[in-house]
Nucleic acid binder design. Structure first.
Length: 354
RNA sequence: AGGUCGCUAGCUCAAUUGGUAGAGCUUCGGAUUCCAAAUCCGAAGGUUGGGGGUUCGAGUCCCUCGCGGCCUGCCA
């Protein structure tokens, strides 16, 4: 099957599942996650976080992974990891993920030894060239400018397979770039089932139509490392300052044209996400008032949109005990899955001796 | 384990026979601009991996320790 055909197939299946979600939420267990390299920004929010909250609220069991070990795939040090984990927890809670009201489990790699142990048999189901061929990994190595590739970087898609399969997750919301990883997870599940015993589901992709949010420099995806991001927890003044620094163009007449005016289009799209208007409507409203007006409007819209989240975030920040409880609770529940699955795996492999 | 090369600003790298540690990019500020970008001007940024020694003087030479790359080997 060609890559394109695979993609078409993934879209088709994703649409079928999407239609089924509200009818049969109990059929699905969702896994997503983030590397704790810093606080989350509005690209994360509009790209995935909002969708996770939506899935949670429609009754799906959702596991959210803080992939702390994977911080080290492209750097030598974890940095202020404890602070970063805390910031991400605050972002999750502020965005509306709620382990107390919903079937949501927030947990960390490092707290689940059984999950990581699954990695070992999984690694034997994958060949080295298969890992080296992964286009997303190749891109990430290139983007990070790595001249030394550590083994964890090469095998992190296998680690992801363990993340998904330890809890028998069957639905993974992803962007197009993550499809190769999910394909590998499916392959690993299939090979394990074939070689030992049928215990793993083959997880499906839920392709989001979420727009990619460009950074404030307008040329690349928003990301912390490119220093072009607005953090969810930023103050209103910081947000205003960052938006003011965004790249635009010299044309005073504001139009929505993603092809020729990607920077302006990106700002219009952000307003659209905050207000519910279409980008074209926003552009018409600004007319010939220029990018200054566009930025003022975005600043007001975004600050207003994020205000309730930021308020919640500040309140959670005052309650570190509650934040710790969220993670401890999630770790405990995730670990129960992991212990159970590892037992099954060892049984299937004939590795229970005593 | 052996051989070898390396460690200088946030990043990439300079620094003559031993003689005041610099540049580019990034960051920050200013000019400019409807706002930006680009451009121009300016600023910040360092115990030269740690320690010791030689010397009037060490990034540079010597010793030592640490960390890392590559090559070869060994082991489960």
């Amino acid at each position: 099957m060609t890559a394109h055909a695979t993609f078409e197939e993934a879209i088709r299946k994703s649409e079928l599942i999407s239609a089924d979600l509200s009818k049969n939420p109990q059929k699905y267990r969702v896994l997503t996650g983030d590397r704790p390299t810093g606080p989350l920004h509005i690209g994360h929010y509009f790209g995935t976080l909002a969708n996770r909250v939506r899935l949670q609220n429609s009754g799906l069991e959702s596991l959210i992974l803080i992939a702390d070990y994977q911080v080290l795939t492209d750097r030598d040090s974890v940095g202020q990891i404890a602070a970063n984990v805390r910031e991400i927890l605050l972002d999750y809670l502020a965005a509306g993920l709620d382990p107390f009201k919903h079937k949501t489990i927030i947990f960390a790699h490092s707290a689940i030894p059984e999950l990581n142990q699954l990695l070992l048999p999984f690694l034997t189901l994958v060949s080295v060239p298969e890992l080296e061929r992964n286009p997303t990994v190749k891109d990430e190595i290139k983007a990070a400018g790595l001249n030394i590739i550590n083994a964890a970087m090469l095998m992190y898609p296998v680690h992801q397979a363990a993340d998904i399969l330890f809890c028998k997750g069957n639905l993974v919301p992803v962007g197009k770039d993550q499809l190769p990883h999910l394909e590998l997870s499916r392959k690993i599940a299939r090979r394990f089932n074939e070689r030992y015993k049928n215990i793993f589901p083959e997880p499906d992709a839920l392709l989001s139509e979420a727009p990619t949010i460009l950074g404030l420099d307008g040329s690349q995806k928003m990301s912390k490392s490119r220093n072009n991001a607005i953090f969810l927890g930023a103050s209103e003044d910081e947000t205003a300052k960052l938006i003011k620094s965004a790249k635009t163009d010299a044309d005073r007449q504001i139009t929505y044209d993603p092809e020729t005016r990607p920077e302006v289009a990106n700002l219009l799209r952000l307003i659209s996400l905050c207000t519910g208007q279409t980008p074209v409507q926003v552009a018409d409203q600004i007319g010939d008032q220029g990018s200054g007006k566009l930025k003022a409007l975005l600043t007001d819209s975004l600050n207003a949109y994020l205000a309730p989240m930021r308020k919640r975030r500040l309140e959670f920040a005052k309650n570190p005990g509650l934040v710790s409880k969220v993670l401890n609770m999630g770790n405990q529940r995730a670990r129960e899955f992991a212990i159970k699955t590892l037992d099954e795996v060892r049984g299937a492999m004939g590795m229970i001796y005593g």
